[in-house]
Amino acid sequence: MKPANRIMKQVLRGGTAAIAAMIIGGASLGYAQESVSVRATLLTGGVPVDDPSAAVWSSAPPATFPMSPQVHWQNRIQEVTVKDVIVRALHDGTQVAVLVEYTDPTQDPDDAAALEFMVGDKKAHFAHGQPMLQVEGGPVNIWFWKNKTGKAIDMSAKGFGTLKPQEHQDVTAKGVYSNGTWKVVFARKLLTGHADEDVQITAGQFMSISFAVWDGRKDAVGELVEKGSQKAVSSWWYFRADAPPDYSGYMYAAIAAVLGLGFQFVLIRKLKKGQ
């Protein structure tokens, strides 16, 4: 059966190429995911809302995000202390905690860090959600921690000069400095009931997050170097709170495989009988 042989070789070659292509394509997608999102791991039991050093943080996968000096709008700064932030997150279905970790050689009263989220379905421009010219944008929700006060302020903005603390303060924060590293944990309920100004976190859904850090060091004449818009900033990245595990996909797959097997069986029976 020479022709059949040759044909099958072709099938095999074609199939191998197709499968190889799928694997290559799939692998690159899998890689992209690692760095572009913060995943809040689902816990049972309490979230360490005020403990940046809790052992349970090691169960959350760390994601590293590069920071830039803020040179996008006035007042700019050309060089900042913090080059990267490492971010982890945990949630238990009610509370979410986000741990931001970064290197800073000195602890200063004016050290500060912030998370920024897009609020609602409309995209917000990364710098405080300033109005875009051709696209209708949304507001941002900022969780701002300061070493000096040891607290977080829950803030809103839509464009430059609009940043203000909210009436409802829903966020807590706690920073711990040791060995040249800041670890700051921000915490809040997943949902707050103020959907127009607070990010509402639904498990399984991607939201947009960005980061800012101020090193509160002073220059030779005692002026703060990083303050206000002079800070380290990140681009927009994704944040997602893990949904409870869902195994229904495996069940559907098993049913489909059984159906496939049955189809095969019937087909061959028919072909053989047709002889």
């Binding site: 797959a253 489909a256 495989a257």
Partner: peptide, 9 residues
């Protein structure tokens, strides 16, 4: 059948 299952998954 495995392929069908995988695709469905």
């Amino acid at each position: 059948p495995l392929l069908v299952g995988w695709q469905t998954y």
